[in-house]
Design a protein around this nucleic acid. Structure first.
Length: 368
DNA sequence: CAAACGTGGGG
DNA sequence: TCCCCAAGTTT
């Protein structure tokens, strides 16, 4: 257990208020582990106490949980595990299958990387995940956090998977004044001082549970915290002030027109988006470009000549860095209408196999 | 390194 | 309605 004094090099330069009078004990990792033993949450991807989880399951869950809530991930995790129980099974899947199964979960590069990673493990690692952070880090879609998570949880390596929970907990423990994202390096250094001498997987998950259930972004339950006697922010009385965050960029609005061509048999005209970029590789109804300011001329972008009818209302959708307002133009076309190059007709029964992102599901509600 | 990259739920 | 947030990675 490093003494407080040894943290000087990574501590914030400004002396936090409230530290002067009462000496705070250094946070003891064993106290958190004891708390975890009493309050550990049951989660589908979590192994029974005292056992290690299969690395593929840790991998699958960690990729899905990136920037995504537990509640949202649950059904996707169950579906993926049932359909592709092993890394070999996932590696054998077609990318399109993986993308359609991922549809609705967001950040679709994750699905592409998940698949590429499974193939890399199957092809270049004999079907076995690397058991070191460095080895894991070299795989597609696995960054510093996920490498440390798999290494600690599945392989019991000494590693600090510093996620948003860890950052919040550490920022409060040490009252870090520097704002995110610049504070990331400092927070990581402080986090590593907290690591125990054993039970690295449990400690990693304990930090996440603590952040998710006690040291929450708003109204943290400090009274229930095993580290309440070691927390500078709690001593200051303003835990919610941490972590400090930089101002966010404004979110502009882009507009466009989506063309909903409905054939007599109910089939809809669909195409696939480019593999890179927004909604990469996902299925979509053709549309004008999505632009800020002056909308593009719809007629110039219609996929085929038809009696287009502008529908009332718009489809609104919020992406991570812009909001989208889509006007829907719909046309009923004859049964024999051919699909233009790069497009295809998809019937209702075929929707399941398509990789429609949520924004397109909204557009497709205008079929009838 | 800042920006791109989704979505749904809660206050 | 609006803003924030959630087990980050890639370029």
């Amino acid at each position: 257990m490093p003494a407080r004094a040894s943290l000087a090099s990574v501590s914030p330069p400004t002396k936090p208020a409230g530290r002067g009078d009462v000496a705070l004990a250094a946070p003891d990792p064993r106290a958190l582990l004891r708390w975890y033993d009493r309050h550990r949450r049951e989660l589908p991807w979590r192994a029974a106490p005292g056992t290690r989880q299969d690395s593929y399951r840790v991998f699958l869950s960690e990729i899905m949980l990136q920037q995504t809530t537990v509640v949202t991930v649950r059904p996707y995790y169950a579906a993926f595990l049932a359909r592709w129980p092993t890394v070999a099974a996932l590696a054998a899947a077609k990318l399109e299958e993986v993308l359609s199964a991922w549809a609705g979960l967001g950040y679709y590069a994750r699905a592409r990387n998940l698949h590429a990673c499974a193939r890399a493990v199957a092809d270049a690692h004999g079907g076995v995940f690397p058991d070191t952070e460095a080895g894991l880090l070299a795989l597609p879609g696995i960054g510093p956090y996920t490498a440390a998570a798999i290494a600690s949880i599945a392989h019991e390596r000494r590693a600090a998977p510093v996620d948003g929970n860890w950052e919040r907990v550490v920022a409060r423990l040490f009252a870090v004044e520097e704002a995110l994202p610049k504070a990331r390096k400092r927070l990581r250094a402080l986090a590593e001082t907290l690591l125990p001498d054993a039970r690295f997987g449990d400690f990693a998950q304990a930090m996440m549970d603590l952040g998710a259930t006690v040291c929450t972004p708003r109204k943290p339950a400090c009274i229930l915290c095993p580290w309440r006697g070691s927390c500078v922010a709690q001593a200051q009385g303003n835990p919610e002030a941490y972590p400090v965050k930089a101002a966010k960029a404004a979110r502009p609005t882009r507009r466009g027109v989506a063309f909903l061509a409905v054939r007599a048999d109910g089939a809809v005209l669909v195409r696939s988006r480019p593999e890179k970029g927004l909604l990469g590789g996902m299925s979509e109804v053709p549309s004008t470009p999505w632009l800020e300011g002056e909308p593009a001329d719809p007629a110039a972008h219609a996929p085929l000549a038809a009696p287009w009818q502008a529908l009332n209302g718009t489809v609104g959708h919020v992406f991570s860095h812009f909001a989208l307002e889509l006007t829907v133009w719909r046309a009923r076309v004859a049964a024999g209408t051919p699909a233009p190059a790069g497009h295809r007709w998809v019937k209702r029964e075929g929707f399941e196999a398509e990789a429609f992102p949520s924004v397109m599901v909204k557009v497709l509600e205008y079929i009838d």
